[in-house]
Amino acid sequence: MQIYLPIAEISLNLYLLLGLGLGVGFLSGLLGVGGGFLMTPILIFLGIPPAVAVSTQANQIMASSVSGALAHWRRKSLDVKMGTVLIIGGMVGSVLGVQIFGYLQSLGQIDLVISLCYVGFLGVIGSLMLVESVNAIRRRMNGNPPPKRKRRKRRLIDALPFKTRFPVSGLYMSVIPPLAIGFLVGLLAALMGVGGGFVMVPAMIYILCMPTSVVIGTSLFQILFVTAVTTFLQAAQNQTVDIVLAAILIVGGVVGAQFGVKAGAKVKGEELRAGLALLVVAVCLKLAWDLAATPNDLYVLIEAGGAP
């Protein structure tokens, strides 16, 4: 059954969109990532204008993270204080990102920048995660105990000012690193139509050294607010949020996310991370190939609105 999307101005198959929402929602709940890094390229591939795909994705991710964050809230696996610091950084990033998005769109380079961002981020993060999780799985199979965490050396991060205590995570650290991470994620949310979980989860584990148990809940908490701001700004400024498309993706997404959270409790952390890493690397390779392969048509048409 075809459904016409009022802002994207294209009609697509309703069941295809529902299925997409379900699948990506499942991953969202399972891995604590918004799933935007999968959904946005697929939506663009289906013919939805990139601007609409990115903005609508923010709206959909917001709904998934509401339901995901609530589930973690009930299980108390969420650091509200850390989340709040990340959100403050995220909002600034999002506001800036929406402006950059509009500027790049007027230059006709938005597709390229979106793709390059994807290839860069997904490539680096995917391969790092893959190496780390495969090593962890190998160690477990060989029966070796995980290497003892040595007393950390005094790192650069520890030298930063504005220190505060994060009781839930059991950390005492400067607010600058989480602010910076939040900012970066907010920027990505606006530019790439992603929640940013795939950047934030590793950053929280490896840079902030947060306990894995609260990482996913906290990242969903932050994503929720940053995508809310992004959705609102894109709608108010660029009129690119398609509420019908978002509603369809949300219906599939929220259901999928609940199953994902449940499934996540049964799977081992290393396997989960290895699976996510493989997915990230696969999407990265696909996008890199599309950038480098000779296109079918060397010319592109871009609708030019208003004055030159």
């Binding site: 917001m62 509401v66 959705t231 609102f232 509420i243 978002a246 929220v254 996310a257």
Partner: peptide, 14 residues
């Protein structure tokens, strides 16, 4: 409206 829709549906699902 988009925000309210997303928040409500997420909450409802939870």
């Amino acid at each position: 409206l988009a925000l309210i829709m997303a928040a409500l549906s997420g909450w409802l699902a939870a």
